[in-house]
């Protein structure tokens, strides 16, 4: 449907109503979906896809950000493959994802199941668990760094009161990532709980009645009724949480700055450092493109896996 033809039709509309007008109406009907999605497409193109293409272009250059870019070819990509720090930051990201995604989803599910029954103060308790989600990541990081502070933080003060020793939460490489994971759980559990709660409520009661008649115990009810019916919610949460974990930035930036050593340096942290600390925008872009592809592949795998499990059901 060429734009020119539409223009003609439009032009002749006044002279020849009827046939042409109807053809125009059909054409217009075909255009409507494009008009409706146009605002989003324009915004995504301008502020997401064009920048992504530009980042891809820059990844073949040496660019200090304040000077002029110089062509480097694929050097940034060969460097990336050989850079042990890139692999370490990728490993850190995976460890972070593995330690936060399953745990926060499991806790979210437990909370949702507990809060799906009639309990005194149910609405209030639900709100409390959801509450941290509304706290900005900067504020979360700030308060977490404040509480985990080794010398005047409240957590160590409590440990000392209990007669235990202080723990170097943020300056011992063994403790930094767990501290970060705890702060993450605090934020994310509520979101997972709400989504699971919603999913639980859309399970028809009939299923449970049927299970009861069959004499299924609580555990087997969960295994054979609840969990399979929660699969779509689990799938949605898995994708969102994994993407979120791969993109975590503000919290790390505020809490540990990627240290001690490289123990909490995530890929995104390394990208940020290359771009703004060592002024290697080209290399930062190459890592960015690689990270994007990794997330894309991960999501595609999850997508396929869920499709297969659904068709198996």
């Amino acid at each position: 449907m060429g734009g020119l033809m539409d223009g003609d039709a439009n032009h002749g509309k006044a002279a020849l109503p009827g046939h042409r007008a109807r053809r125009w109406a059909v054409q217009r009907q075909k255009l409507i979906p494009y008009v409706f999605i146009a605002p989003n497409i324009v915004l995504f193109t301008t502020f997401s896809f064009l920048p992504l293409i530009y980042a891809f272009y820059i990844s073949f250059h040496d660019w200090s950000l304040i000077g002029d870019p110089e062509w480097l070819g694929i050097h940034n990509y060969t460097r990336l493959v050989r850079d042990p720090l890139f692999w370490q930051s990728l490993r850190n990201t995976l460890v972070y994802a593995l330690s936060t995604v399953p745990t926060s989803m499991a806790i979210g599910l437990l909370l949702a199941m507990a809060l799906n029954r009639r309990l005194p103060g149910r609405t209030f308790i639900r709100s409390v668990y959801f509450l941290p989600l509304v706290v900005s990541a900067v504020a979360t990081g700030t308060i977490a760094a404040w509480m985990f502070n080794e010398n005047y933080g409240v957590i160590n003060a409590a440990l000392v009161q209990l007669g235990l020793g202080r723990i170097s939460w943020l300056s011992n490489p063994a403790w930094a990532l767990p501290s970060l994971a705890v702060a993450t759980l605090w934020v994310r559990v509520g979101f997972n709980m709400v989504v699971y709660l919603a999913a639980l409520q859309s399970i028809p009661a009939v299923y449970y009645e049927a299970a009861k008649i069959d004499g299924a115990s609580g555990l087997s009810q969960f295994r054979h009724v609840t969990f399979p019916l929660l699969a779509p919610a689990t799938f949605l949460l898995l994708i969102l949480n994994v993407i979120h974990s791969f993109q975590v930035f503000d919290l790390v930036y505020v809490m540990t700055g990627g240290g001690p050593g490289f123990s909490t340096t995530m890929v995104v942290q390394y990208i940020f450092k290359s771009a703004f600390v060592t002024s290697e925008m080209g290399y930062a872009s190459a890592m960015g493109v690689a990270l994007y592809l990794i997330i894309l592949v991960f999501t595609a795998i999850q997508w396929r896996a869920s499709r297969q499990s659904e068709s198996a059901l």
């Binding site: 979906p33 999605i37 989003n40 497409i41 995504f44 301008t46 502020f47 997401s48 896809f49 064009l50 920048p51 992504l52 530009y54 980042a55 820059i58 950000l65 993407i243 791969f246 993109q247 930035f249 995104v268 990208i271 940020f272 771009a275 925008m281 930062a284 872009s285 960015g288 493109v289 990270l291 994007y292 997330i295 894309l296 999501t299």
Partner: peptide, 27 residues
């Protein structure tokens, strides 16, 4: 339709730090 929908889902996966500078240039 499908291509556009998956493209939009693809946008969800772009880490902001990757496109921060180009996005800044456009803005």
């Amino acid at each position: 339709r499908n291509i556009l929908f998956f493209a939009i889902l693809g946008a969800l996966m772009i880490p902001i730090q990757v496109i921060l500078v180009p996005e800044f240039l456009i803005t």
